[in-house]
Computed example of a mutant assay.
Amino acid sequence: MSQGAVTVLITRRVRPGHGPALEAAMDRMIQAARSFPGHLGGRVVRPDEDADDGLDLFHVVFAFDTETHLREWQQSEARAQGLEAVAPHVEGRQQVREVDGLGLWYAQPKDSQDPPGPPHAPPPRWKVAVVTWLGIFPTVLALFLTVGPLMSDWPLVPRVLVITLLVVLIMTWLVAPRLTRWLKHWLHAAPHDA
């Protein structure tokens, strides 16, 4: 049983024309999850409009402080009702990945054209480290050049707090999704291709 925080990434394919209704139903599920013990956050990620794969995949992220609290949410009546509300707006089965730490940035759910079997293996840790550094270095540098001078008179702890908060937000919602999309063939290459 996991002793640390657990994040779940759920992927659903939206029926044509059902995007807004699906997003509203998912938002209601996230709202319901907030009342459960150990809930750390949730977010809907809309389909990438720039993607050229033609897939209308919505993602929902739920995070709980322990696996026990996650299981309580997953077995709840509130979640069951949420899944019923989502059902008319999706096609196919949901894909679920549980990840921890930085794994959420690099999770690659199975594609509908993939053969049956387990989800894609996560990339090797050294590749995760390289891509993480490729995102964090320019992000931190840009923040030190832009935001840093504005906080030059601040005490050290508040400056570090603001910079690290901005790094996490920018990496999670802007830099990491793009890097992992641009580098996905390298990140998930078979060992002999790497």
Score class of each variant (00 low, 15 high):
R159V: 04
S35T: 11
F144G: 05
P149M: 13
M1A: 01
V6P: 01
E98V: 11
V128E: 15
D50C: 02
A107F: 08
V167Y: 13
P116A: 14
M151K: 08
I163E: 13
G92L: 05
P116M: 07
E67T: 01
A63F: 03
Q31I: 01
P118V: 10
A33L: 03
F144A: 10
A142I: 10
A25G: 04
L22M: 09
A129Y: 13
A78N: 04
R97E: 14
Q94R: 14
P123K: 10
M1Q: 00
R93H: 11
G92Q: 06
E91C: 05
A87Y: 07
P158N: 10
R79I: 00
L55W: 02
L145V: 12
T180M: 08
A33W: 00
M151F: 13
A194G: 14
G41N: 00
R159E: 05
A33R: 01
E67C: 00
S152Y: 10
P109C: 09
W133S: 11
G38M: 01
E77G: 03
P88H: 07
V128A: 07
G117R: 08
D114I: 07
A24G: 03
A25M: 03
H89K: 07
A78C: 02
A21I: 01
P191Y: 09
P149G: 13
H120S: 11
Q3S: 03
A63Q: 09
A189G: 15
D193F: 09
T132W: 13
L165A: 15
T146K: 12
R46K: 13
I136S: 12
W186K: 11
E91H: 12
R15I: 00
W73D: 02
H18R: 04
R46Q: 13
A87S: 12
Q108T: 06
I136H: 11
L169Y: 13
W173H: 15
P138N: 12
L150W: 13
L187A: 08
F144R: 12
A142T: 13
L165M: 12
R28Q: 07
A87G: 06
